[in-house]
Design a protein around this nucleic acid. Structure first.
Length: 766
DNA sequence: TTTGTGCATGGCG
DNA sequence: ACGCCATGCACAA
């Protein structure tokens, strides 16, 4: 035993009070570990301690414990699953799965053997490793794993922690230099100074993530059509609560990214080219860790789409684990720079802290910028309030405000924390829209937003038309062009958003998605065939109004030749080539070259494009001009009814948020704004909302909405209930179906200002 | 006076 | 009834 050297390459200690036996070597012997490393090995935290910066970490598919795969030191602690993935040895045993390997388990190393003296050893390991400046890794790896839970059981039963009697392993461990020692204490600094491979992984992941989060920031466009079968497509509303994806083929839905420059990946991975048009609804996902699923309120569930997940983690070795998200409250987004974290999330996903001061936390944003926030807590009653301090620069750099959503994800196996965001479109877009005065103003504002959307060139190359409302507004903000008059309501709104009900806020976010749906719908709507519009001039803006409802079709460009002949151009959903079609046909929402029955020489994607780039450019320009003039309104009769109703219900929309306590807002309300209630809309549309909800098994929505509002409602015309189930301000009924005239109708209730619902009736004919 | 900090309060789920 | 958390608020710097 003369000149022994610790087998641990990171240690290589040549002297030790006691040498310990480590993992089995190929030679049949065992690794020779110094006191410190040996203890770590015995404690099952060897890799946690020494390899935390390495790649190869995966999570136990059952308990989520971090496992270092492919490492000899951990080989006995995990099982490779037949179905892929890994399982920790404990879960393997509990599940009765027969271990397939590792019978050479050294020294019978298992939880049971280590448990006996773990308390003593735990401390000793910690102390000894401390000097290596890698303790935090150790703890971090413990944090998210059942190792920690295992340790917890072994720890002294006394509980000096005030909060709830739940012992956190870390809290009874020796202090680890939480403050002022970022290099060793950061939960996510695993990547710093990590191996080159890890860096590459992170880079790869981040490049995708950047796109993703930028796209997230723009929010999806979603159009949902009701199916005639009665199969409820309440995904947009209910998924938020239920976390279910409803993707029936019948429920034709489309989702588009609102990217200024849509990454081809996004377009190619199933938005435009998705043959089945399976909807990509933003669905809240319960946390991966099963335990948390029940604890974490759904409003914190990450709402990333499969598509986005696939996009960012697709060909990378890293997996992106969406952790949670939070809608920023006014306080969060305010200048205090403190972001209150949901307790359950903080305790589940961030390192455990024992001192109120907490520790600095390094989080990377979508641009790859590293932010360091102080992650800490305040004692609160007998509990804790977790906050991130110093978030102001980050919030500002992301141009976030109350109502926007920040998302937290983790790159596994690196464990790096990522921070993304989604803008709540309404917070800005709503301010851009004028207070609506009367129906003409309402129309005008519709036109405004519509024109805004059309004011940018169409993106022909990407095979999709991009909308740029957000981009425009965002740039306004960025350039500091917000007028002072708009800033005041902004602050007010901020306050309103967070103060009362998060759920209402979520509703409004969905509403905004729907608003964009409407924008998109406008582009996909065509005037009914063989009907001449009446020209309606409202505030110097000409609109074409049709007696018949518009119809839904694939976007196309209608052009009139100088000879007078009319033609229609549309883009193949598969090859993106433009094809000339007769002007008097309506295209299905999805159309490809083989559908071109009018021109057999161009009924294949291999057929060359008929348009030169210059011609295309001209065509697009033409289309732009055309759309500037076109404004498809709802059925005129319907419009009149709405108009009447809105006059009769001047108080609709009052209340709910902080309106009553806000004098300025009160004043606004009394300045003759027209408020159209959801209820009245639904009455117009022939079926009361409540009835509709009940018919579709959405009674949960009714009860939920009831308690959320103190405002009055229009008494439903056809039910005996006096309480309207829905708050006019916030109710979002994304669609509504009726069988009138054999058509399906879609109602999109749009929230422009809290007190104003902007209705849109869109009719779909198939 | 303003800004930052730590805790208390109270609405709400 | 309880706990979370948005915000208020007193005190400090």
């Amino acid at each position: 035993m003369g000149s022994r050297v610790c087998t641990n390459d990171l240690c290589r200690a040549s002297s030790s009070q006691e040498w310990k036996k480590g993992w089995p070597l190929r030679s049949g012997e065992f690794a020779n570990l110094c006191d410190k490393c040996g203890s770590a090995y015995e404690q099952l935290v060897f890799c946690d301690t020494f390899h935390s910066k390495d790649t190869g970490w995966r999570e136990c598919s059952t308990c989520g414990k971090h496992l270092h795969c492919g490492c000899i030191a951990s080989s006995s602690l995990l099982e490779l699953l037949d179905s892929g993935g890994v399982k920790c040895i404990e879960c393997t045993r509990t599940s009765g799965l027969q271990p397939t390997s590792n019978d050479e388990n050294p020294k019978g190393l298992s939880m049971s053997t280590t448990n006996n003296n773990s308390e003593k050893q735990l401390t000793s390991v910690d102390n000894k490793v401390d000097g290596d400046n890698v303790t935090a890794m150790n703890h971090e790896q413990l944090d998210n794993s059942d190792v920690r839970n295992g340790l917890k059981d072994l720890l002294p039963s006394h509980n000096d922690d005030a909060h709830g009697g739940q012992i956190k392993g870390e809290e009874v461990l020796p202090p680890r230099g939480e403050v002022g020692n970022m290099s060793s204490s950061n939960f996510n600094q695993v990547s710093i100074g990590s191996s080159e491979a890890a860096k590459v992984d992170i880079y790869k992941a981040n490049t995708g993530i950047k796109d993703l989060y930028e796209s997230l920031a723009q929010t999806n466009l979603t159009i949902a059509l009701a199916s005639p079968s009665g199969n409820s497509n309440h995904a947009v509303v209910e998924d938020r609560e239920l976390g279910k994806t409803i993707s029936s083929f019948q429920q034709v839905s489309r989702s588009r990214q609102l990217l200024p420059k849509p990454p081809k990946a996004i377009l190619a991975t199933g938005l435009e080219t998705n043959a089945s048009m399976v909807p990509q609804i933003r669905v809240a996902r319960p946390p991966a860790e099963g335990r948390l699923k029940n604890q974490l309120l759904p409003r914190y569930w990450p709402r990333i789409t499969d598509q986005e997940l696939q996009l960012i983690s697709g060909d990378s070795n890293s997996t992106i684990v969406p952790l949670f998200e939070k809608v920023l409250s006014a306080s969060d987004a305010g200048r205090i720079g403190r972001l209150v974290l949901p307790k359950a999330c903080a305790e589940a996903y961030f390192p455990h802290i024992s001192q109120p001061e907490g520790l600095p936390l390094r989080i990377q944003d979508v641009k790859g910028k590293e932010w360091v926030f102080q992650f800490r807590f305040w004692p609160n009653n007998n509990s804790r309030m977790y906050v991130l301090e110093g978030v102001t620069p980050c919030i500002q750099s992301m141009q976030l405000q109350a109502g926007d959503t920040v998302t937290f994800s983790r790159i596994d196996p690196e464990g790096k924390l990522l921070m993304g965001f989604r803008k709540a479109l309404n917070t800005i877009a709503m301010q851009k829209l004028p207070v609506i005065s009367g129906y003409s103003g309402l129309l005008q504002s519709l036109a405004d937003s519509h024109l805004n959307a059309l004011s940018k060139p169409l993106n022909s190359a990407g095979g999709d038309f991009s909308w740029h409302i957000m981009e425009k507004h965002a740039s306004d903000t960025k350039d500091g062009l917000l007028l002072p008059s708009m800033l005041a309501p902004e602050r007010k709104r901020s306050r309103n958003i967070g103060s009362k009900s998060k759920r209402l806020l979520i509703d409004s976010q969905d509403a905004l998605e729907l608003k964009l749906t409407w924008e998109e719908a406008q582009d996909m709507l065509l005037p009914p065939l063989s009907e001449k519009p009446s020209i309606l001039t409202i505030e110097d803006q000409e609109f074409e109004e049709y007696e018949e409802p518009p119809v839904f079709a694939k976007r196309s460009i209608f052009a009139t030749r100088s000879s007078g002949g009319q033609e229609q151009w549309t883009q193949c959903d598969s090859c993106s080539k433009w094809r000339k079609l007769p002007a008097d046909i309506l295209l299905p929402p999805k159309w490809t070259c083989p559908d071109n029955i009018w021109d057999h020489s161009r009924c294949s994607c291999s057929a060359p494009d008929e348009l030169s780039p210059r011609e295309l450019e001209y065509l697009l320009k033409l289309n732009k001009e055309f759309k500037k003039r076109r404004m498809i309104t709802s059925h005129r009769m319907l419009r009149d009814q709405i108009n009447n109703l809105s006059h009769k219900t001047p108080e609709i929309g009052k209340g709910g948020l902080d309106l009553n306590s806000d004098p300025e807002r009160e004043e606004q309300l009394h300045q003759g704004s027209t408020r159209v209630s959801m209820m009245s809309l639904l009455q117009v549309a022939s079926l009361p909302l409540e009835t509709y909800l009940k018919q579709n098994g959405l009674t949960s929505l009714i009860s939920e909405q009831e308690g959320s509002s103190g405002s009055q409602s229009l008494p439903p015309a056809t039910t005996g209930e006096s309480e309207g189930p829905v708050h006019e301000d916030h109710c979002v009924v994304p669609w509504f179906k009726s069988t009138r005239a054999g058509m399906m109708s879609l109602i999109i209730a749009e929230m422009i200002l809290p007190e104003i619902l902007l209705p849109l009736f869109v009719y779909f004919r198939f």
